[in-house]
Design a protein around this nucleic acid. Structure first.
Length: 950
RNA sequence: GUCGAUGUGGCGAAAUGGCAGACGCAACGGACUUAAAAUCCGUUUUCGCGAAAGCGAAGUGUGGGUUCGAGUCCCGCCAUCGGCACCA
C-alpha cells in the first residue's frame, strides 16, 4: 500500500527469471569436448574488465560496460554463436590489506564478503554471465598459475636475433641472470619510513605520503623487475592492426615513447675516457657548446675537479632530497653546477664544459646529453641562466620560414638548398644571429656552420652526420624508449608470493610441484618498518631449508589481471593454466581456420613479427574504462606475447577489439563521489524501476564511449517505454491482475506495420554490432509508438507511402475504411488488434536489452499462441526483408539555392529528368527563381532537387 | 607546454556531404477523473509578420575556405574535459 504502484510487475517477474536462468544454467558455454558443445557454431568471446571487489559495492558506472557486453553476448547467442561471457574478481589489492591492518580482519574474509556482495548485485541486474567460469585472482587454484607464468618468464630471455622470448637454455652467454625477463635490480623507490612501506609514484604527493602526509624519501632497494623494454618495439608494431580506439593506441605508443637518433661519444678532455650521449638531433652536433650529466651519473664522481667538489656535492644532496614529483613538477627554473671538467666536441675538437643538472634524467638514454642551446628550448634556458655559449647551426629552410623575423639581407630564406650558405649568413658570428632573430630554430631547417653537413636539410643532415660518426668510430644510430622495465615486487601481504628462494645471496626457483605457494597465515599485516615486507614475520614460512629462505616480496595487483582472460577459457583445468584446445577455440581468430592452425612453438622457425595475420585473434570484444588504457593493457599484452613466444598460446595479441565506456557523472554533472552525495546505487534504481529499466536507461543515456550525467527522470522515461511494451501484450482486469490482452491476435501485420518491423530489425541489429545502443532503443520506441498510437502526425514520416492510410493499428474506424491488412486474416471488427508474430519479433529484438520483461511476455503469449521453442532465448534473431523497406513513393525536398522551398511526393522510380521538370514547374520554386537565370539543376534521385539560380 | 576527445534546443541526444533537432526528459495545453496519480492526445530552436492556417529570416562554439549544397570535409582561433609532462 505504501509502496508506489509499479507500472508493470517487474518486482515479481525479474527475480523469477533470474532464478530460472540460474537453475537451468542457461548461460553456461560448454568447452570443446564437453557435453552440449556444438562445434558447428562460431565462437564469440566478449569480456568485461573484471572489478576489484571493493567494500562499497557497485555503483552505476560499473554496469554501463557490463550492460553493453551483456547485450552483445545475448545478441550473439541469438545469432548462433557459442558465446564466452565470463566474470571474475581482481581480488588482491591494497584496500583489503589496509582494512586488515586497521581491524585485524583477514583480507581473505573481507574479500570473500565483498565478492559475495558484488555477485549479488550483478545477478540482480540480470547479466548472462557463465558463473561456472568465475575466477578470483586470490584463489590458490588461480594464482598457482600466476606463479607458474612468472616461472616461465623467469626462465626466459629475449633473443634479439629472433625478436622473441626463448627458454634461457638457448642463451649462449655466460651470465644468464643478466638477460632473464625477470631479474633483480637495485632501483630507487619511494620509501615512507613512517608507514614502513614503499609507495607507488601515484601514492606520493608533493614528497608526502597520500595517506597520512608523512615524508617520503627516495631510496634504492632490491626489487624484482620484468624486462618489458625488450618488447618495446613489438608492443608498438603489433598494436597497429588491432581494432582499438586510435586514442588508446596513441596513448600506448606515447607511453612506450620510441625515438630514433644517435649515440655520440664525447672524449673527456685530458683523460682517457669518453662519455656517450643520446640525441635525436645529431645534425646539431656542431652546436653542442656544453654537456650535462644527470646528478646521479657515476661519471660525476670521477670527473669533478677538487675546486668544484663541494658545490657538486651540495647540489647532489639537494636533488636527492626531492621526490620524483618535485623534481619534474611544474615548469621550474633550471638549476645545475659546473663539474670543472671538459669534454671534447668530436666535430671540431672544441673543449666544452661538463655540467650536472637535474633536467637530465639518469633513467633515459645514457643519463648524459650534449647541450645545443640554439636549437633546444631547455638547453637554451639553461645556457641563458649560466651564460653558456649559444651557437646556431640550423637555419630555417626556404619555404618553412614562419615569419619574416630576420632582415631580408641575412635571411636564410635566400639560401638555395644544397648550397653552402657561408656568404649569405653571418657565419661565425652567432651573437649577431641571435640578436637578429628572436628565437632559435627548434624544428627542421638546414644545417649551417657545420662543415660536414652544411646546407643539408635536417633529415638528410642527420643521416650524413650519423654515417660520418660511424665511419670515425665516434657514434652510431640508436633507438631509445621512454618505457622502463616493470617494477614487479611489492612489500605487501595480500598478493602472490614469488616462487623464489634465496641461497647464498642468489635467487633460484622452487619446483613447479610446490605451487601454489600460498601466503603464510598472519595476524599482523603491517609492514615491519625496516623495509622488510610483512611476510618476514612468518619465520617458519620464510625458512625454506637450512640454506635457503623464501623471497619476501609479493607480486603487484596487475599480475592476476595480466592473464585472467585466459583462465576464463578453461577455469577448471588443474594441469595447465589453460588447455590448448580451449585456448585455441576461444582465443582463436574468429573467422574460419582454413589458412591452417596458428603456428605454435615449432622451435625457432617462426618469427612472430610481421606474420600477425596468421596469429590474429584474441578476445573478440573487450570493454572497460580508460583508466587502464596504458598499464593493464600494456602489461597484459606483454605477458601474452611472452607466452605466445614460448609456444603456450596461439595468438599474438590478447584483445582484438577494445572499447572504452565513458564515465557516468552524478545528476549534478559532477563526478560521482561520497563527497558530493551524488552517488547512485544500482540496487536503489532497480527497486524503483526494475533491472530492465536500469539496463535500458544505462544504454539510452547516450553513446557508450561518452561521458554523461545520470538522470532519474530519464530512467522514468525508459521505464514508461517498457511499460508500454508490457501493455501491448497485457491488460489489467478489475481485480488488478495482468492478463494476456484480447487485442493480441493471430492476424497478419499491415503493410505499414511490416515496414516499421523490418526497419527496426535492420536498425537494431546494425546498431548492436556498432555498439550504438541508444539509437537501437530509440528505434524500438518508434516501433512501439507506431503500434500504440493511432495515426498521428509524428509518425507521418514512418508511414509515408502507406497506401492504407496513416493508422498502424487496426482501430475500428480506420480498419473499416482501409484495405490495408494483408491477405487472409484481418482485425476483428470493433477490436483493435496486434499481430502476435510482430510482437514476438519485437520481444526478440528487445530481449538483449530487457531480458526479463521479454522472457515473461514471450511465455505469456505462448500460453494462448503455442510456439516452439517455448523459451525466447532459444529462438533465432529475425532477418529483415529489404522488400518491406522499399517505398512506392518518396517525398522529395525542392531547393532553390540550397534552401528548401517545397516538397513533392513522387514515385520512387522517377527519373532525374522528371524530377528536374517537376521542380522547375513547381509554383513555390517559380516564386523564388522569378527574375533570375537558372544556371543548373542538381538532381539526386530519391533524395532532392536543388535549382541554382541568380 | 604538449597530445587527444568534445562543443547541436531548457536538458540527455539524433543525423552514409543532401529536409538539423529522430528518440527521450522537462515544460505547457487538452482528454479521462469528484480530485489527484497513472494513462492517452497535442504543442515546444530562436526572432519577425499574421486572428489563424501560414509566411519569411536566422540557426549546430568562433572566423575563414572547398562545394550546387557543410553539424558533417579543409585551415586558423576559443572553451571544456582527459592523458603525458624537462624523455635530449
Amino acid at each position: 500500500m505504501s509502496e508506489r504502484r509499479k507500472p508493470y510487475p517487474f518486482d515479481i517477474l525479474e527475480p523469477k527469471w533470474q532464478a530460472l536462468w540460474e537453475e537451468r544454467n542457461v548461460f553456461h558455454a560448454p568447452n570443446p569436448g564437453e557435453a552440449g558443445f556444438d562445434p558447428a557454431r562460431p565462437k564469440y568471446y566478449v569480456l568485461d574488465m573484471f572489478p576489484y571487489p571493493s567494500g562499497t559495492g557497485l555503483h552505476v558506472g560499473h554496469p554501463e560496460g557490463y550492460t553493453a557486453t551483456d547485450i552483445v553476448a545475448r545478441y550473439k547467442r541469438f545469432r548462433g554463436f557459442n558465446v564466452l561471457h565470463p566474470m571474475g574478481w581482481d581480488a588482491f589489492g591494497l584496500p583489503a590489506e589496509q582494512y586488515a591492518i586497521r581491524t585485524g580482519q583477514h583480507p581473505e574474509i573481507t574479500t570473500a564478503q565483498n565478492i559475495a556482495h558484488f555477485k549479488k548485485q550483478l545477478k540482480r541486474i540480470g547479466f548472462s554471465y557463465d558463473w561456472e567460469r568465475e575466477v578470483s585472482t586470490a584463489d590458490p587454484r588461480f594464482f598457482r598459475w600466476t606463479q607458474w607464468i612468472f616461472l616461465r618468464i623467469y626462465h626466459s630471455w629475449f633473443n634479439p636475433e629472433t625478436r622473441r622470448a626463448e627458454p634461457i637454455a638457448t642463451y649462449q652467454g655466460d651470465d644468464p641472470d643478466s638477460v632473464r625477463l625477470a631479474y633483480v635490480a637495485e632501483v630507487p623507490v619511494n620509501w615512507c619510513p613512517e608507514l614502513g612501506t614503499v609507495l607507488a609514484n601515484e601514492e606520493v604527493i608533493d614528497g608526502k605520503s597520500e595517506v597520512g602526509g608523512f615524508p617520503v624519501v627516495r631510496r634504492p632497494m632490491r626489487q624484482w623487475m620484468l624486462r618489458i623494454t625488450a618488447y618495446a618495439e613489438r608492443l608498438i608494431d603489433e598494436l597497429e592492426p588491432l581494432d582499438w580506439p586510435e586514442g588508446i593506441k596513441l596513448l600506448q605508443r606515447n607511453w612506450i615513447g620510441k625515438s630514433e637518433g644517435a649515440e655520440v661519444k664525447f672524449a673527456v678532455a685530458d683523460r682517457d675516457e669518453a662519455i656517450a650521449v643520446f640525441t635525436t638531433r645529431p645534425d646539431t652536433l656542431y652546436g653542442a657548446t656544453y654537456m650535462v650529466l644527470a646528478p646521479e651519473n657515476p661519471f660525476v664522481d670521477r670527473l669533478t675537479t677538487s675546486e668544484q667538489q663541494a658545490a657538486v656535492a651540495a647540489y647532489r644532496a639537494e636533488v636527492s632530497a626531492k621526490s620524483d614529483l618535485e623534481r619534474t613538477d611544474l615548469a621550474k627554473d633550471k638549476s645545475g653546477v659546473f663539474t670543472g671538467a671538459y669534454a671534447v666536441n668530436p666535430t671540431n675538437q672544441e673543449r666544452i664544459p661538463i655540467w650536472i643538472a637535474d633536467y637530465v634524467l639518469m633513467g633515459y638514454g645514457t643519463g648524459a646529453i650534449m647541450a645545443v642551446p640554439a636549437h633546444d628550448e631547455r638547453d637554451l634556458e639553461f645556457a641563458r641562466q649560466y651564460g653558456l655559449e649559444i651557437r646556431e647551426v640550423v637555419a630555417e629552410s626556404p619555404g618553412s620560414a614562419r615569419d619574416s623575423r630576420a632582415g631580408a639581407g641575412d635571411s636564410p630564406a635566400t639560401v638555395p638548398p644544397g648550397s653552402i650558405p657561408g656568404g649569405t649568413f653571418p657565419a661565425g658570428s652567432p651573437e649577431t644571429a641571435r640578436e637578429s632573430r628572436a628565437l632559435p630554430t627548434l624544428g627542421d631547417g638546414c644545417a649551417i656552420n657545420s662543415p660536414v653537413i652544411d646546407g643539408l636539410p635536417t633529415s638528410e643532415a642527420k643521416h650524413r652526420i650519423t654515417a660520418w660518426l660511424e665511419e670515425q668510430g665516434l657514434g652510431r644510430r640508436t633507438v631509445n624508449y621512454k618505457l622502463r622495465d616493470w617494477l614487479f615486487s611489492r612489500q605487501r601481504y595480500w598478493g602472490e608470493p614469488f616462487p623464489i628462494v634465496w641461497r647464498d645471496g642468489k635467487h633460484e626457483t622452487i619446483p613447479e610441484t610446490e605451487l601454489p605457494l600460498v601466503p603464510p597465515p598472519l595476524d599482523d599485516f603491517k609492514p615491519t618498518g625496516s623495509g622488510e615486507p610483512p611476510l618476514a614475520r612468518a619465520q617458519d614460512w620464510v625458512r625454506y631449508s637450512d640454506a635457503a629462505s623464501r623471497e619476501l616480496n609479493t607480486m603487484p595487483q596487475w599480475a592476476g589481471s595480466c592473464w585472467y582472460y585466459l583462465r576464463f577459457c578453461d577455469p577448471g583445468n588443474s594441469g595447465r593454466f589453460v588447455g590448448h584446445v580451449a585456448e585455441r577455440y576461444w582465443m582463436g581468430g574468429a573467422k574460419n581456420e582454413s589458412e591452417g592452425t596458428p603456428t605454435v612453438s615449432k622451435g625457432a622457425a617462426t618469427i612472430p613479427n610481421n606474420s600477425a595475420s596468421s596469429v590474429r585473434g584474441g578476445v573478440d570484444l573487450y570493454v572497460g574504462g580508460t583508466e587502464h588504457a596504458v598499464l593493464h593493457l600494456l602489461y597484459a599484452r606483454f605477458w601474452h606475447k611472452v607466452l605466445f613466444d614460448l609456444g603456450q598460446l596461439s595468438t599474438l595479441e590478447p584483445f582484438q577489439r577494445l572499447v572504452n565506456q565513458g564515465m557516468i557523472l552524478g545528476e549534478d554533472g559532477r563526478k560521482m563521489s561520497k563527497r558530493w552525495g551524488n552517488v547512485i546505487d544500482p540496487l536503489d534504481v532497480i527497486a524503483e524501476y526494475g533491472a530492465d529499466a536500469f539496463r535500458c536507461y544505462e544504454m539510452f543515456m547516450g553513446p557508450l564511449e561518452q561521458m554523461k550525467p545520470w538522470s532519474m527522470t530519464g530512467v522514468e522515461g525508459v521505464s514508461r517505454f517498457l511499460a508500454r511494451v508490457w501493455r501491448l501484450v497485457m491488460e489489467e482486469n478489475q481485480e488488478g491482475q495482468w492478463l494476456l490482452s484480447e487485442t493480441v491476435q493471430a492476424v497478419e501485420p499491415t503493410r505499414s506495420q511490416l515496414k516499421v518491423i523490418h526497419a527496426t530489425i535492420k536498425k537494431v541489429g546494425e546498431d548492436i554490432e556498432a555498439l550504438s545502443f541508444n539509437t537501437a532503443i530509440a528505434q524500438m520506441m518508434i516501433f512501439v509508438n507506431a503500434f500504440t498510437n493511432p495515426g498521428s502526425a509524428r509518425d507521418s514520416r514512418a508511414v509515408s507511402g502507406d497506401p492504407a492510410g496513416n493508422s498502424l493499428r487496426g482501430s475500428p474506424e480506420v480498419a473499416g475504411e482501409s484495405p490495408a491488412p494483408a491477405r487472409e486474416s484481418r482485425a476483428l471488427p470493433g477490436i483493435r488488434s496486434f499481430p502476435v508474430a510482430s510482437l514476438r519479433t519485437l520481444l526478440v529484438l528487445l530481449n538483449p536489452f530487457a531480458p526479463h520483461l521479454t522472457s515473461e511476455l514471450w511465455e505469456t503469449l505462448g500460453a494462448k499462441f503455442p510456439i516452439s521453442p517455448a523459451v525466447i532465448t532459444e529462438h533465432a534473431w529475425p532477418e529483415y526483408r529489404e522488400e518491406y523497406l522499399i517505398e512506392d513513393e518518396v517525398e522529395i525536398p525542392l531547393q532553390v539555392n540550397g534552401k528548401v522551398r517545397d516538397r513533392v511526393t513522387v514515385p520512387i522510380d522517377a527519373t532525374s529528368a522528371d524530377l528536374g521538370a517537376i521542380a522547375l514547374a513547381n509554383t513555390r520554386v517559380q516564386e523564388f527563381i522569378a527574375g533570375k537565370t537558372v544556371h543548373k539543376v542538381v538532381v539526386i534521385p530519391k533524395k532532392l532537387v536543388n535549382v541554382v539560380a541568380n
